[in-house]
Each structure stands twice: as structure tokens, then as C-alpha cells.
Amino acid sequence: MHNKHIRRIYMIPYALWITLFVITPIILVGYYSFFDIEGNLSIVNYQKFFTPVYLKMTLSSFWYAFLITLISLIIAYPTAFFLTKTKHKQLWLLLIIVPSWVNLLLKAYAFIGIFGKYGPTNYFLEWIGIGTKQILFTDFSFIFVAVYIFIPFMILPIFNALNELSPSFIDAANDLGASRWATFRRVIFPLTLDGVKTGCQIVFIPALSLFMLTRLIAGNRVITLGTAIEQHFLVTQDWGMGATIAVFLMLIMFIFMILTGKDV
């Protein structure tokens, strides 16, 4: 009886946290989305969202987030696989994680220099005879930097999944005459799928609402839903429209979670 009582007390922080910082904000976002810029109750924001401007923006955010996730995955899986085979795997893993300790803004500014017209990348391109190219403020630079920033979050869960995979499964597959490719396709990949799903979620969801990089690296030539929310809250002060976009962003994320979720 006493124990049960104590357990209830320990639930308080969790319950408080969830109500104050999860449920209340979501309700507030929903609430604000029903006010137009003059503060009148209306659904004008929702009508506005279904105009070509915002639909196009949603599609392009989706497309960029998809590309960022896909490229991260393509690079991260082999990397994680390689890491599990190394001798000091925790050390190598740490080296990949360390850059994520550096402030995002600093990294973005560094890339402005690296990709600049007179930066090292163009110096190299010039040297190998390709010649100076416009790299900064292109789709390429945007996706490259985004992948660079998100990739540790993709590698970590995949690494953990691979690391926990018992080698006996692979031995069994080998003994039963499976080729290396078949072992990977039939044994390793399905067993690490949860790690891949987690990685995709952790990358895709923030990638969908990226905003700072769109200005610093893409020079506002890539507009995502995140950029629009930022603008509505800070510049236009049209909180209603900003909140409406946030509602749709949450819906998209929710759908994505269900699609990639572990048997929800």
C-alpha cells in the first residue's frame, strides 16, 4: 500500500512534464491556428494552407527531407557496419559524434567559407581542372550540409542495432550456405530494421522543419515549412498562420511515425 503511494508521487514529474510541455503546447498551437491576423476566430488559415503556395512548400519540404534522409541512410548504414567491425569501435563512434557537439550555427558559417567562390572546395575543383563552380546557395550545398549535420543521428541507432546483432545468426546463415548478399538481405538487414526506422525518424522529422540552413546555406532559395513558420512568428507576427503550418507539420510527422513505427 505504502509502496503504491510512493510510486504515485514519482509519477508526478512525468505527468507534469507531459501536461506542461507536450499537451498544453499542442493544444495552444491548435488553438492559435483558428485565429486570423486581426485576432478573429476563423478558418481562413486552413483555407490559405490549401493554396498552391503552401502546398508547393509542403511538397518541397517533403522532398528535401526525403532526400536528406535517404542520403544519410545510404552513407550511414555501411559506415555503421564498418564501425562494428573495427577494433576500437566505441572510439571511432565517438569521433563521428563529436562534431554534433559543435554549435550548429558555427558549422553553418564554416560551410559558407568552405563552399565559397574562393573557398577550399573551389580551389580543389580549379586544381583538378573542373574550374570554379557555384556551390554555395544551391540544392547541393543545402542537402550536403543537412546530411553532414544529421548523419550522426542516423549512424547511432543503426550502429546499436548492428552491434547487438548476435554473430551466431550470421554463422548460422553461413553454415546453411547463404551467400554474403543473401545473409545481408535475409538476416542482417531485417534484424537491424528497427535501428534504420529509428534513424529515419530522427533525421526525417527535424529535416522537415529545418529553417536556419535554408537561409545560411541555401540563401533562401529553398523554402521549407520551417522557414515559413519562422517568418510568420517573427516577421509577419501572423501567429495563426504559423500555428496552422505547425499543425500540418505535426500531422505529417504523425503519419510518418505510424508508417515507420514498430507495429503501432
Binding site: I112, Q134, L136, F137, R215, L216, A218, G219, N220, R221
Partner: peptide, 11 residues
């Protein structure tokens, strides 16, 4: 238009 930026334009 190459880019639409804030204070970075000076740099």
C-alpha cells in the same frame, strides 16, 4: 538572384 540573406551579405 544568387541568395536572399541577412547580415551575411556584408561578408
Amino acid at each position: 538572384v544568387k541568395a536572399i540573406v541577412g547580415d551575411e551579405n556584408k561578408l
